[in-house]
Simulated scan of single mutants.
Amino acid sequence: MYLLDKLKLIPGDIILTRSDEKNSSLICRITNSNFSHAILYVGESSYIHSDLCGVHSGNIQRLLIDKPQYVKVVRVDDPVAIEKAIIYARLQVGTSYSKISAANAFAKTFTKMDAKRQFCSRLVATAFEQGGIKLVANSYACLPQEIADSVLVCEVQDCVYQAEPKEIEFAMSIDPIKKQTEITNNILISVRKLLGNKVQSLSDITSALIADPKYDNEVTEIYDTSGYLTMWQYEQGKNPWRYNIDLFNALPLSESEKHTLAMKELKIANKLLDLYTNNLMQYLYIKEQYGLKYAKQQFCLYEILVKNALAHKLTVENILGK
């Protein structure tokens, strides 16, 4: 088994894969392609893709590859486009999968009625099109192989290595991200029963309730009972050293290793702080402007997340002596 070297990857890299599984081999054979799946790497070991469970995130350290020739990583040389593509992909999380559009991609046909749903190569291609980079002729009906062959990407070389037994064990262990995906999908299934299929992602819920606040209480209750509002507790329990100076100092690392780790963590903390602060201000505006109970609930969530990000930032800044 093989893994991708995350030290060789940067945010915005596109990962094309296939496997020995029946469905993957069938797709490659029917489409005369080397790859059956497309993934967008968003940094910090995380990627976003669309599969039968819809659009969700994953951990690159859990992406086992059967053979080294079964993966290709390509890169777009445009930082602005990459940033916009990642923002777009994040907003698509929770969007349902389109079996029809995925099946019709080879024939280059799609229905506008299905345009809001996703499949793997559509997600990646439309994300970059939002950033001003048209990787393929038809972003809504394209194959992973077309992205791999695009003249607007260059291949990232030597980024695959043979996984160690401990790495394989971790990759196959219980994945908390799957629980997050399950929670997100359950929220969307319940909300769609109230608001209809116009809600394809979590971001659609806000605009739908602004347009029609009839189900404000019901949607708020769905979130309350979903487990979504306390997902942040898992990360804090797993990595408490990120939020406590004494615990960080107690890590079994040399001083130089701690400094390197702190520099990396500072970048993560700053990105999260920017993201959470932006969302906090958006929900503050919506709460004050429209009086939605749902907006107040989300505002309270992002208050907690901003507080956590600040604790993270202050911890590593202290380690760095700032």
Rank of each mutant, 00 (worst) to 15 (best):
K178F: 02
I48D: 09
R117S: 15
Y276I: 01
V151E: 13
A89T: 11
S98K: 09
H312N: 01
E221Y: 12
Y88D: 14
L272K: 10
N318L: 01
P68R: 12
V42G: 09
D51H: 09
Y302I: 01
M281E: 14
N249S: 08
V199I: 13
L16V: 07
V93K: 15
L63Y: 06
L194N: 08
K322Y: 12
E218K: 12
L292G: 12
S33V: 04
N186R: 15
K322H: 13
I100Q: 12
K264R: 11
I27W: 03
S24G: 10
F128D: 09
I82N: 06
V55L: 06
C53P: 00
K116C: 05
V136E: 12
Q289L: 00
V306T: 09
V160A: 05
I82C: 10
L305H: 04
S256M: 04
K116D: 14
E288C: 04
K112Q: 12
S98P: 08
V199T: 08
L280P: 06
Q180H: 14
V76Y: 08
M263F: 03
L305Y: 00
V191T: 15
C28I: 01
L135A: 06
I168H: 05
Q130A: 13
P240R: 05
Q282V: 07
K178R: 12
A105K: 08
L195N: 10
A148D: 10
L195G: 07
P176Y: 01
A262Q: 00
